[in-house]
């Protein structure tokens, strides 16, 4: 589904991302972990053609994302609040996205009905503009909007951050359901090792722009990741 080929990004001669090759098959739920500055957001931005690669390219369904716009109809994403339109109400925003993805009002309403739990009564019908919602509620809106219109590729950057524990659990359930649904490729990044290991079947660790681990999730994965990241601390301590 998604192929990264010799993808790299340099800012002022510093490589912030350098991925030799990465293949994400259709239907995989893919997790990306790494410390701040590891290149997670840069990588996701490049998948969406929001950042121009220094070298290499991204193929999505055999379409080069920087050369054609053909990937847009089957791809949706929520990276940060710049994906929200502040002066719309949540409903208006959902309908807007729906219209862009060929869904009418009724389709969107039906789909939103499934998320009543997730919204916890704080999103629909609150008569507030998105810019006046709390960070957590904005995130809920962005995540659900990314699910509108049956996209085949869904990219979520740090979906668990800023969410309350109840919502985190509900989000995990939603992501697991997406995994069951046939053919939806979900890419998420997270700082929370426990969450990613629970919802992703494959986890890639980025460190300073490089892929240092590529794991198929198993019961041992969480321990392996924890060992890896605490090993980093020890290493740094011994260096200092």
């Amino acid at each position: 589904m998604i192929t990264l080929h010799q993808l790299s990004k340099e800012y002022k001669n510093i490589k912030v991302l350098d991925v030799e090759s990465l293949e994400i098959p259709k239907g995989q739920s893919f997790g990306l972990v790494g410390n701040n500055g590891a290149g997670k957001t840069t990588m996701f931005s490049m998948l969406l053609d929001l950042v121009r690669p220094t070298t290499g390219y991204v193929l999505s369904n055999d379409i080069r994302v920087d050369q054609s716009e053909g990937w847009k109809p089957f791809t949706s994403a929520f990276l940060d609040e710049t994906f929200l339109i502040g002066y719309l109400t949540p409903e208006e925003y959902f309908y807007f996205i729906g219209e862009l993805r060929g869904q009418n009002k009724a389709d969107v309403d039906r789909m939103l009905g499934d998320f009543d739990d997730f919204f916890n009564g704080e999103i629909l019908g609150v008569r507030k503009y998105l810019r006046d919602l709390s960070k957590g509620n904005q995130k809920k809106v962005g995540i659900v909007a990314a699910l509108i219109g049956n996209p085949e590729v869904i990219i979520l950057d740090e979906p668990f951050a800023n969410l309350d524990p109840t919502t985190q659990i509900r989000l995990k359930k939603i992501l697991r359901e997406l995994k069951e649904a046939n053919g939806v490729t979900v890419l998420i990044s997270s700082h929370d090792l426990m969450h990613v290991t629970e919802v992703c079947e494959r986890i890639v660790v980025l460190e300073k722009g490089r892929m240092v681990k590529d794991i198929r999730t198993s019961p041992e994965t969480l321990r392996e990741l924890e060992a890896f990241f605490s090993g980093e601390i020890r290493e740094n301590a011994s260096l200092a």
Partner: peptide, 13 residues
């Protein structure tokens, strides 16, 4: 303020 959305959504220029 939401240009990344416009650039990655299903929108033709």
């Amino acid at each position: 303020s939401y240009y990344p959305l416009m650039m990655s959504q299903n929108i033709q220029y």
